[in-house]
Simulated scan of single mutants.
Amino acid sequence: MTAKLPAAIELLRFTDRQHCAEAVAAHVAAALALDIADHGSASLAVSGGSTPAPMFKTLSRLDLGWDKVAVTLADERWVSPDHADSNQAKVQQLLLQNDAAAANYIPLWNNHSDGAADAAALAQTEQALQQLPEKLSCVILGMGNDGHTASLFPCSSELASLWDAESAAAWCQPTTAPHQRITLTPQRLFASKERILHLNGLDKLETLMKALAGTDVSEMPIRAFLNQPITVFWAP
């Protein structure tokens, strides 16, 4: 399966998922270490789902001065951390362990207004995100087969307003997936020195090629990120 890649995209293919995960972890660790060396601190936004799990485990064991690293999520289901669908729970269980336990974790979810997804809760998340630098060291994205990334869903009525949103985070309610979502906005995700797209499976490669074949970001939001520099790590 081939397609002409835009100059800004680097596609790295691996024969198996573990080697791919290890390569992503090494790449991210190098980016964080560079910012720590240059600026004394680094920052990382990660995605949930099953794909990053082995990468999280590998990254958590890499010694790079984690006490100088701030970690947040690219998006989150608006459920408490003890919920089975919480991205925060997976990050805490898999990434914020071993050496990475020293990192400063900045959650998107909060229990303001008793956990309701309202303006006050969003404002509290925005305030928490102010701890991050103007430009994140690295953002790790995933992609659904509908072309969504973070919680930028093509089925969401909020999507059109998110492209020009000046806030760091926003609500997004998909109709094809459960739970109210909170997501870093495209502007906040693009305010990063490096972006990575981590994919597993032939279906994801097919989705990537479909996304590259078109231009409508409302149909497949991942297209917005494929128009900018990004490194894609893929394994079957």
Rank of each mutant, 00 (worst) to 15 (best):
V91S: 12
E76L: 00
A116R: 10
V46F: 04
S86M: 07
M220W: 10
S167Q: 14
W163R: 02
L44W: 04
S113T: 11
I140M: 15
L141V: 08
N98L: 12
Q131N: 09
R61T: 02
T2P: 05
A23H: 02
W78D: 01
R223F: 01
P54T: 00
I36T: 08
E76H: 01
L152I: 07
R223K: 09
I36Y: 06
S80G: 10
D63K: 13
L34C: 13
E134R: 15
D38I: 08
S157I: 15
G65F: 11
A121Q: 07
Q92N: 12
A26W: 11
A33N: 07
G65D: 04
D35G: 12
L94V: 03
Q173I: 06
A53Q: 00
L32Q: 14
T125N: 00
S60V: 02
T175A: 07
N200M: 11
L197W: 09
L73D: 06
S60M: 08
Q130R: 14
D99K: 15
E76M: 00
K68E: 08
P6C: 04
L208M: 14
H83P: 01
L184Q: 03
A101R: 15
L212V: 04
Q173T: 06
T72N: 00
I182Y: 02
W109E: 02
K210R: 14
L162E: 09
V79Y: 01
Q187G: 05
A224N: 12
A128F: 01
Q127V: 06
V91Q: 05
N200V: 12
A213C: 10
M220E: 08
M209F: 11
S218M: 14
F56W: 14
Q92A: 08
D216A: 03
D85P: 03
A128N: 03
Y105N: 03
A23E: 12
R13V: 03
H39S: 14
M220Y: 11
P81I: 01
T176R: 13
A29L: 06
V69M: 01
H179S: 08
I222M: 10
P81C: 05
A224E: 13
S50R: 15
S218Y: 08
F153K: 07
I222K: 05
A7M: 04
W171Y: 12
S113H: 00
Q180G: 02
A168M: 13
G49H: 05
D216C: 09
D85C: 00
A121N: 02
A33R: 09
L94T: 04
N110H: 00
L122M: 02
A169H: 07
A103L: 04
G115Y: 03
T58D: 11
S137F: 09
L199Q: 05
A123R: 04
Q92C: 14
L73E: 01
A42K: 10
F153Q: 09
K204Q: 10
A30K: 15
P221K: 13
H198W: 07
A119W: 02
D75K: 00
L162G: 10
I36N: 03
D164A: 09
F56I: 09
H198G: 07
D16P: 07
A8Q: 14
P154Q: 12
S86Q: 06
Q173V: 08
D203T: 12
G201T: 07
I230M: 14
C138V: 06
V232T: 13
